[in-house]
Design a protein around this nucleic acid. Structure first.
Lengths: 338, 338
DNA sequence: CGTAACAAATGAAACGATTCAAAGACGAGT
DNA sequence: ACTCGTCTTTGAATCGTTTCATTTGTTACG
């Protein structure tokens, strides 16, 4: 009673064989009504709870799906994670979320962990170069889906949003409102960020007399944004960009905090500001933040669907789903300069 | 090579006994340098990865700690979760996060799941009444720590923040700035929320001529807050409260969105607004949001510490750690009415 | 009455790691 | 040469499930 009862204890208590108890649990139809009742009663009395480790050992695979994100504190990722969880639950699986915090070693740590756990599959928004690692995982029968990053379809599946297009939309919008000297804030070592930047650069190249400088931030958090904002404030007014495109909303809100705290710079008159992701908090910012919206629910849901497809095909067929981002204009990019 | 190698395969390949391979992994000192090298080489060549299920089955316990929160999308909880993860990692454990979404059945689902996984321990911020369930868990050797809610110390340990005090601080602050007709927004069915409310009521009782009405929200999200805000906007101006205290910042930001969208109501002149948790986004809100700050990192870290204490004592000794919340005043509660 | 057909229940084997008592190897001391 | 002690290695037993070939029990039919 005090310690955990095993299936054997249940069998003894109900006076049946262990196989019968297992059948009651897994194939109730194979068992007669009478014994079923007896077994269920014993289970209740002993407070028996299946040991998942034993089950998994026998099955050779777990009912678990690993998800590695860049930052769970970012509403974008927590939204994707929740959608994935819901979709997985519907399939009888569970999602384990690991937070790499944009750190390659933490990412590797979680990959090791998930491999030891023999996860059904892996969803990952990678920091480092994980292509080789993913190949070996696939060889071992662990299908992987890249999340928020386009993959080579003959290596693995992916769900992503067209980041180049998103970057283009953002920069184009800033240029359309008359700004010429742009700045990009983010960590281009992350592929998604690099793509957003290159989209922005394309837009700049198309516009006469436009320039874009890159400000590498220390991370993609509110705090990192605040730091960049402080640097901007310290510049001579003429040296400041007319518009800032941040690679995500957290950064943008951080920049906004710094700029509005020191009352010298006005948004959007002096500096226009646009973010990326359109998190819930963007609309209620000091100056409501323009942003690029991504379909987070669709990303999470589709990731699970693709994983299921991979499993069915035995990891041979891959598919890349690409969603289109959407520009959301708010006050932070209103009007035109001067 | 293609499928996963077991310890037996490694043993064969390295021409040693399985026990030796196990020793290389767990007690390297017991093995001679030469065989150790040979075994490690085989491990690398075969790409062997430990099977956690088997290990866990033998050990009878996993290296996993379950954490059930009310809403991972809420930065308060993701911050607590991250702190707990970091503390657990330092102890060689892993935290699995389950999101109950304030739903008792989802909460029960995760409890079942974690019990099947034979987690080392459980951290939970409960929705429903889980006292009995926790008792049986303890009997089965699964220590539990209540997070963000005070527990009876002769039943289980807990880390919390004094919610009554927090509620008192918030309401008192509103009253001190001259407001008399207050409103409380939240879901008092959640214990924490109920405590915040009762603290606020105490403050109101102390102030002459002050009243507080309770607006039960559908959840504790930005969306739920927006709904409440819309209701407020539709009231005749004289019917509106002079100050609103929301049981968390998400709700407060939602209310703020509704109020500022329709330009008729001004914050803080017409309605003052205060939230709870002091999430990162509070400071960068349209009108910077006053709030009650809670020490999230300390909560997460301490939860893990208490769990360790429970484990050491065999679940016999319990301790309740209570932190003190702190009032953070910003523009949303500035000045006084009229 | 014999037996075929089907349903229900049985229990040993397997999954992959860890543990531990026992055996083996080797050198030092007598 | 023999014994003792230390260090290494061995391999069977174990954890709690699921699976599946067998056995047992029951009913139907010729």
């Amino acid at each position: 009673m005090s310690q955990t009862a095993s299936i054997k204890d249940v069998a003894t208590h109900a006076q049946v064989a262990v196989g019968t108890v297992s059948n009651v649990l897994n194939y109730p139809d194979r068992v007669s009504q009478r014994t079923k009742e007896r077994v269920l009663k014993s289970i209740a009395e002993l407070g028996f709870v299946r040991n998942d480790a034993a089950r998994q050992l026998r099955a050779g695979q777990s009912r678990t799906i690993g998800l590695i994100v860049l930052d769970v504190g970012n509403p974008f990722f927590s939204s994707v994670a929740r959608a994935a969880e819901d979709a997985a639950t519907a399939l009888g699986s569970v999602v384990l979320v690991g937070d790499s915090g944009q750190d390659a070693s933490r990412e590797a740590h979680y990959m090791d962990l998930f491999q030891e756990q023999r996860v059904q599959g892996l969803l990952i928004s990678p920091v480092g170069d994980v292509a080789d690692r993913i190949d070996t995982l696939r060889e071992r029968g662990v299908p992987t889906v890249l999340v928020d990053q386009l993959a080579d379809t003959d290596r693995c599946s992916s769900v992503s949003v067209d980041d180049q297009e998103g970057g283009y939309l953002a920069a184009r919008h800033l240029l359309d409102t008359g700004r010429r000297r742009l700045a990009f804030v983010g960590t281009p070592s992350i592929r998604q960020v690099a793509n957003r930047l290159s989209g922005a650069q394309r837009a700049v190249a198309e516009a006469a007399g436009a320039t874009i400088e890159v400000l590498d931030s220390a991370g993609q958090t509110v705090l990192a944004g605040r730091q960049v904002g402080n640097d901007l404030v310290e510049r001579a007014p003429g040296e400041r960009p007319e518009a800032v495109f941040c690679s995500n909303d957290l950064l943008a809100l951080g920049v906004m905090q710094s700029l509005t705290m020191l009352r010298t710079v006005k948004i959007p008159e002096d500096i226009a500001l646009i973010g990326y992701d359109d998190i819930d908090f963007a609309v209620s910012a000091v100056v409501p933040l323009s942003s690029i919206r991504q379909p987070t629910e669709a990303l999470g849901r589709t990731a699970i669907e693709l994983l299921a497809e991979e499993q069915e095909s035995g990891g041979t067929k891959h598919r890349a789903v690409v969603f289109t981002p959407e520009l959301v204009v708010r006050q932070s990019t209103a009007g035109s300069p001067n």
